[in-house]
Computed example of a mutant assay.
Amino acid sequence: MRDIFFDLSVRSVRLNFLRSLLASIGIVIGVVAISSMGMLGTNMQLSVKDQLSSNVNTVMLTSDVVKVSTSANSSVENGIDLSELNDIKSSAGQNQVVTIHHTSTQFTIGSTNGRGTVYGLNPNDIPKFLTIDQGSNIQGGNDALVGATIASNFNMGIGSSIKIGQNCATIVRPVLRVAGILAARGIASDGVNADNAIIVSDDWYTTHFGDKDVYDQVNVILQDVDTINQTEANIDKKVNRNTDVIRISDASSRLSTITSTLGTITTFIMAIGGISLVVAAVSIFNVMMMSVKERVQEIGILLSIGTEKGEVRRMFLYEALILGLIGAIVGGLMSFIIGYTVVQAMIGSTAYFFLPESLIYIPYGMIIGVVVCVVSGLYPAWMASNMDPIDALRNE
């Protein structure tokens, strides 16, 4: 059985089609803003999580204190010394221990200057956590591996030369030869930004940058990821026995921090997008109030022939619901298209776009849009149902 009050609501929307369409556009914009930003944030989180999970078996150790060197030329050092390294090795069991030197420096390729991080590693440790996409591992003393980003930005190939250090006419700068190019790695949880890195042997590094027996970072690569908590506890007990001298972190803690930060940013961006729904709510409220004012005599007739107040309220809530559904459906379709485009442009991949965690934001946005419309129509509907029939019939 058809609801006559629903038919009256459809008629009102049809008679004021342009006004209703403009009001619904606000809902469309709000739904698109919330859904697209939600999908973008989720895709960012999933992408980061996937990249960090590739190093879930790595425990990263860095110095937590600044030490004063006991050598004749007293200096300040910030790193893990040999004594601490031996403690780490003894408490790591059968797990592999990788020592890492690193520093940020300028370099020159051809006539172009750039800046990146130089890492000093034992060449035998490189294949344990880095993948060489082209060329070969470090062989000679001046050999180097370069990250995918540097290789792409500077159009480098095997055999290219890199001058390390700031350009200065009075200083002879060391020159490296590219032996290999690393595979693109993205965000990693082991503290090695390989995509923007120049990898050299630890001997070459200490010869040119010093700190032979002090390491900026030590990574423990686990044979069994299930032993990560026990391994961390053993290292902490052995090395930090008197006071905390090293900081221990792993992929799970870094992943939790990064995803939490991204989640907060996503929520904030969605809240900004939600402002458009507040504007849309004002527009819907205005349209509904105009509809009530224009139909005062119709309301008076309905009330005078015995129509219940609840039925009058329902008639106007139907109208608000229709506007909300129109805006939500159009907004949902546009969210899919615009969201896909935004994710592709901002992240460069839509590998996670069609996952439920991402697409769920479309129905979320649509539901929020419909609810905003119905809520905006509550007061006009209440005002219409509480009119005095006689005063309404007298209205011109």
Rank of each mutant, 00 (worst) to 15 (best):
212 K>A: 05
213 D>W: 05
215 Y>N: 02
216 D>G: 15
216 D>Q: 15
217 Q>I: 00
217 Q>G: 00
217 Q>R: 08
218 V>I: 06
218 V>K: 02
222 L>D: 00
222 L>P: 01
224 D>M: 09
226 D>W: 10
228 I>P: 06
228 I>E: 10
228 I>F: 07
232 E>Q: 14
233 A>P: 00
234 N>H: 09
235 I>P: 01
235 I>W: 07
236 D>K: 12
237 K>D: 01
237 K>M: 03
237 K>L: 07
238 K>L: 06
240 N>E: 01
240 N>S: 06
241 R>I: 07
242 N>A: 05
242 N>F: 13
243 T>D: 09
245 V>I: 13
245 V>H: 05
245 V>P: 00
246 I>K: 00
247 R>V: 09
247 R>D: 12
247 R>K: 15
248 I>A: 01
249 S>Y: 11
251 A>P: 03
251 A>E: 03
252 S>P: 00
256 S>I: 00
257 T>R: 12
258 I>K: 05
259 T>C: 08
260 S>T: 11
261 T>M: 14
262 L>I: 12
263 G>K: 05
265 I>S: 05
265 I>F: 13
265 I>P: 03
266 T>F: 04
266 T>G: 02
267 T>Q: 11
268 F>Y: 09
269 I>G: 03
270 M>R: 10
271 A>C: 05
271 A>E: 03
273 G>K: 03
273 G>E: 02
274 G>R: 07
274 G>I: 02
275 I>E: 08
275 I>S: 03
275 I>P: 04
276 S>H: 10
276 S>D: 06
277 L>F: 08
278 V>R: 09
278 V>G: 12
279 V>M: 08
280 A>D: 01
280 A>M: 00
281 A>V: 07
281 A>N: 09
282 V>C: 06
286 N>A: 08
287 V>I: 14
287 V>A: 14
288 M>V: 07
289 M>A: 13
289 M>N: 15
291 S>V: 08
291 S>M: 07
292 V>Q: 08
294 E>A: 08
294 E>F: 08
294 E>C: 06
295 R>E: 07
296 V>Q: 12
296 V>F: 10
296 V>G: 03
297 Q>F: 12
297 Q>I: 14
299 I>V: 11
299 I>F: 10
300 G>T: 03
301 I>H: 07
302 L>Y: 11
302 L>D: 03
303 L>D: 02
303 L>I: 02
303 L>R: 13
304 S>Q: 09
304 S>C: 06
304 S>R: 11
306 G>C: 09
307 T>W: 05
307 T>Q: 02
308 E>N: 09
309 K>P: 01
311 E>Q: 15
311 E>S: 15
312 V>A: 04
312 V>M: 02
314 R>K: 15
316 F>N: 05
317 L>S: 06
318 Y>P: 07
318 Y>F: 14
319 E>C: 10
319 E>T: 12
321 L>S: 13
322 I>G: 01
324 G>D: 03
324 G>R: 09
324 G>A: 05
327 G>W: 04
328 A>Q: 04
329 I>W: 07
329 I>F: 15
330 V>M: 09
330 V>T: 09
332 G>Q: 09
332 G>L: 10
335 S>G: 09
336 F>C: 02
337 I>Y: 14
338 I>V: 15
340 Y>S: 08
342 V>T: 04
344 Q>F: 12
344 Q>H: 13
344 Q>T: 11
345 A>S: 15
346 M>T: 15
346 M>E: 12
347 I>L: 12
348 G>L: 01
349 S>D: 13
349 S>Q: 14
349 S>R: 14
351 A>Q: 13
